[in-house]
Write a protein that binds this DNA or RNA. Structure first.
Lengths: 122, 122
DNA sequence: TAGAAGTATCACCCTTGACTTATATTGGGC
DNA sequence: GCCCAATATAAGTCAAGGGTGATACTTCTA
């Protein structure tokens, strides 16, 4: 399952938000999510499974408890996917000068400004 | 449809990448996506509809053509949703812009980017 | 005005995924 | 050793969404 599919479900997004606050046993997740979304223990368990298998969480056993924690890797990938778009709303971040220069130059040359990535110029 | 659901589809993600390179008539999108994914014109048109209705794109008519362009707002929301998680992979969230600039500079200077954070100081 | 190009919409099929209830599994305490 | 608590898995239902071919709509052009 692709990272964006995983994040497509509001329950899973909420679970990740919970885990961003620190590790948590499955039971606690079930309780909170159960209250907030009105779904059963198996439903939550299945969401935890998806998160686990897609790499969003780590899990360790502690007695009969399963303690879940956030693994940021997939979120980081999502963040990276956003990179080429970021220039649309974060003009001052990163290589703005370069981008503007290229855009102006391209326009001067009669081309459509290229979007793709940032390389620096001489 | 929630932004993350929209992004859950690889075809739609690809269309957004295309539009990040500049506005494009539906026909061009159909051609490129058709080649890359092997799906029909109606399929692409339906994806464009989803993108339009969920705010990811703007559209204007130009004769019989429909010219699509990127609207960054929803992607920006996604980016914001990531904020609370960024501390897991971005050192010094409080100065993110600065950090990115510094990283770029370091790379330009020929330094190998360190895998772990926290090796530089103010 | 007819016809073609460009695009959207319709009606339908099929798969996928998010639930449910019931049950299996495993560890701790008595 | 038993039983309960904590969690996972199984089996089944249902709705949503993505695909297709057919068709409608609109605007240029001959």
């Amino acid at each position: 399952m692709h990272a964006f599919d995983v994040l497509g479900d509001p329950v899973r997004r909420r679970i990740l938000e919970l885990l961003a606050g620190g590790e948590m046993p499955a039971g606690d997740v079930v309780r909170v999510i159960g209250e907030e979304f009105g779904i059963s223990q198996p439903a939550v368990s299945q969401h935890l499974k998806v998160l686990r298998e897609s790499g969003f969480t780590d899990m360790r056993a502690e007695g009969t408890h399963r303690v879940y924690s956030l693994d940021p890797e997939p979120l980081r990938s999502v963040d990276e996917w956003l990179d080429p778009f970021r220039r649309f709303w974060a003009p001052r971040l990163d290589a703005l000068g370069t981008e503007i220069a290229r855009g102006k130059k391209a326009r001067r040359d009669g081309a459509t400004p290229a979007p793709s990535d940032d390389e620096e110029q001489p």
